[in-house]
């Protein structure tokens, strides 16, 4: 986990938008789309997700490509994918606890 710390990963759980974006990419791992498209897939405004997407890219959990027209996809780094998986499990476990 060279480019993302446990702390920064935990901070994702506090951001509802980031968590929703990460859940979407994790469940649909070969998604490749631009901001416009992703906003449609997750049902949020483009403005609402722009900054969060950039931050997820900085954490290297998402990969941004393209020059004039940027698009995003989930990281292919298996170590990072594993960390995301752990994070999502924790997220669901906490949600379950809260619900009960």
């Amino acid at each position: 986990m060279s480019h993302v710390t446990r702390e920064s990963l935990q901070s994702i759980k506090k951001s509802g938008v980031k968590m929703q974006l990460l859940l979407f990419f994790y469940n649909n791992p070969f998604t490749v789309d631009d901001l416009e498209g992703i906003s449609m897939w997750v049902g949020m405004h483009k403005k609402e997700i722009t900054r969060e997407m950039e931050e997820l890219c900085q954490m290297r959990l998402l990969v941004k490509r393209g020059t004039s027209h940027s698009y995003y996809r989930m990281t292919e780094n298996s170590q990072l994918v594993e960390e995301v998986q752990k994070l999502i499990k924790e997220f669901y476990a906490q949600r379950k606890t809260k619900a009960s």
């Binding site: 070969f30 998604t31 490749v32 027209h69």
Partner: peptide, 13 residues
């Protein structure tokens, strides 16, 4: 296999 969701515009490009 790859199952991807994307936009028509991106595929066109």
């Amino acid at each position: 296999l790859r199952v991807m969701c994307t936009s028509p515009q991106l595929v066109q490009e």
